[in-house]
C-alpha cells in the first residue's frame, strides 16, 4: 500500500516536471495559463496524498489553500488581465526551443545531483521528489530569463512558487501553517501588484514587451 502511494507522489512529481517543460516551450499565452493551473492541480494532488498517508492535518488545509489560490483565483485573475489587455491570443516568438530544452535537461541533471546528498535524509514518503522540485524551480528561472513578454514572466514567477511549495511538501511535511499563510498572502499581493504593473507598462509603452524595458544600462 505504502509503495503504491509513494509511487503516486512520484507520479504527481513527474507530471509537474513535464508541465514545467511544457511551459518552457509554450508560445501561446492562454495555454500557458492553463498549464500553470494544471501544475497547481498536480501540487494539490501530491499534497493531499502526503497528507492522507502521514495524517498531517495541516497539509489538507495547505492543499485547499493551493487549490483555491493557484488553481482557481490566480488563473482567473490572469485570464481577466489578458482579456482586458487584449493579449489573449498573443503568440510569442521563441527562439531556439530545442536549445532551451537541452539546457533544461542539463538543469534537471544538475538539480538531481545537488539534491542527491540531501534527499537520503528526508524521512517523508516523497524523498525522491526533492530533486524534481529543485528542477522545476530552475526550469521556472530559465523560463523567466528567456521570455520577453510580461505575462509569461509572471507565469514563470508563479510556477517558481509552485515548485517551492512542492519542495516544502517533499522535503518536510509542509511549512508551519502561519508561514504558509504568510507566503500565500505575499503571492496574492504580488500578483495584484503585477497586474497593476502590466497596465502601467502597457499605458507607458503601448506593449507588454519587456524588451522596451532595457533603457537602464551601464554606459
Amino acid at each position: 500500500m505504502n509503495a503504491l502511494i509513494s509511487q503516486l507522489v512520484n507520479l504527481f512529481a513527474a507530471v509537474m516536471l513535464i508541465l514545467a517543460f511544457a511551459m518552457l516551450s509554450q508560445r501561446r499565452v492562454i495555454t500557458l495559463i492553463h498549464l500553470f493551473a494544471m501544475q497547481g492541480l498536480a501540487v494539490v494532488g501530491a499534497t493531499t496524498v502526503v497528507a492522507y498517508v502521514t495524517h498531517q492535518h495541516h497539509l489538507y488545509y495547505s492543499a485547499l489553500l493551493t487549490l483555491v489560490l493557484k488553481v482557481f483565483l490566480i488563473p482567473f485573475l490572469l485570464h481577466r488581465v489578458i482579456d482586458r489587455l487584449n493579449v489573449k491570443w498573443d503568440i510569442e516568438t521563441l527562439f531556439n526551443i530545442p536549445t532551451q530544452m537541452i539546457v533544461g535537461i542539463g538543469l534537471v541533471i544538475f538539480a538531481f545531483n545537488v539534491s542527491l546528498p540531501i534527499a537520503r535524509f528526508s524521512e517523508t514518503i516523497s524523498r525522491g521528489t526533492l530533486g524534481i522540485a529543485l528542477a522545476c524551480l530552475l526550469l521556472s528561472f530559465l523560463m523567466m530569463i528567456t521570455r520577453a513578454k510580461a505575462v509569461p514572466q509572471v507565469v514563470g514567477f508563479l510556477a517558481m512558487e509552485n515548485a517551492l511549495f512542492f519542495a516544502a511538501t517533499s522535503a518536510t511535511y509542509g511549512m508551519p501553517m502561519v508561514v504558509e499563510l504568510g507566503i500565500a498572502l505575499d503571492v496574492l499581493v504580488g500578483i495584484l501588484i503585477m497586474g497593476v504593473f502590466m497596465f502601467q507598462i502597457r499605458e507607458q509603452f503601448e506593449s507588454l514587451d519587456i524588451r522596451h524595458l532595457e533603457k537602464l544600462k551601464e554606459d
Binding site: 519587456i210 524595458l213 533603457k215
Partner: peptide, 8 residues
Amino acid sequence: PASLEAAW
C-alpha cells in the same frame, strides 16, 4: 518609463 523599468 525609466521608473517602471526599475520597478519591474
